[in-house]
Amino acid sequence: MPASFVVLRQTGHDQFEFVAEVERRPGLPARKARRAAIVAAIGGEPAAGETYAAILRSEWRIGFDW
C-alpha cells in the first residue's frame, strides 16, 4: 500500500475534523509532501486563519494504540 496522509482541519481549540486521505507524492521532502497533501485535499490553498494538519496514515493508526 502506498504511503498516504490523513488531512485534518482544526475546528476549535484542540479539535480537528477529518478532511481526506491523500496519497503521498514521491520525491518530495516531508514538509513539501505534507503541504501538497493539504492543497490536494482542500482543492487549493488554505484561507487565511485556517489550520490544517497532514499526518502519515501509519502514524495516525499508531496514535490510537495509546
Rank of each mutant, 00 (worst) to 15 (best):
M1K: 09
M1Q: 14
M1C: 15
A3W: 14
S4K: 03
F5L: 05
F5E: 10
F5Q: 02
F5P: 00
V6H: 10
V6C: 08
V6G: 06
V6Q: 11
V6R: 11
V7T: 04
V7S: 05
V7L: 02
V7F: 11
V7I: 05
L8D: 01
L8R: 00
L8E: 03
L8F: 00
R9F: 03
R9C: 07
Q10K: 13
Q10V: 12
T11Y: 04
G12W: 04
G12V: 04
G12E: 08
H13C: 10
H13R: 15
H13Y: 15
D14E: 05
D14R: 13
D14F: 11
Q15N: 09
Q15S: 06
Q15V: 06
F18E: 14
F18L: 15
F18V: 14
F18A: 13
A20N: 09
A20P: 02
E21Y: 13
V22M: 07
E23L: 14
R24G: 01
R24L: 13
R25L: 11
R25Q: 13
R25V: 12
R25G: 05
P26L: 08
G27L: 07
G27P: 04
L28Y: 08
L28C: 07
P29H: 02
P29E: 00
P29T: 05
P29F: 01
A30Q: 14
K32D: 11
A33F: 05
A33Q: 10
A33R: 15
A33I: 04
R34W: 02
R34C: 00
R35H: 12
A36D: 12
A36V: 01
A37K: 00
A37L: 01
I38Y: 01
V39R: 13
V39L: 13
A40Q: 09
A41W: 06
A41D: 05
A41T: 06
I42M: 03
G43F: 05
G43Q: 03
G43N: 02
G43L: 04
G44E: 07
G44D: 09
G44Y: 03
E45N: 10
E45H: 06
E45P: 00
P46K: 08
A47T: 05
E50I: 02
T51I: 12
A53G: 08
A54N: 11
A54S: 06
I55T: 13
I55G: 12
L56E: 07
L56T: 08
R57I: 12
S58F: 13
E59G: 07
W60E: 15
R61C: 10
I62M: 07
I62N: 05
G63I: 00
G63N: 02
G63V: 01
F64T: 09
F64Y: 03
W66G: 07
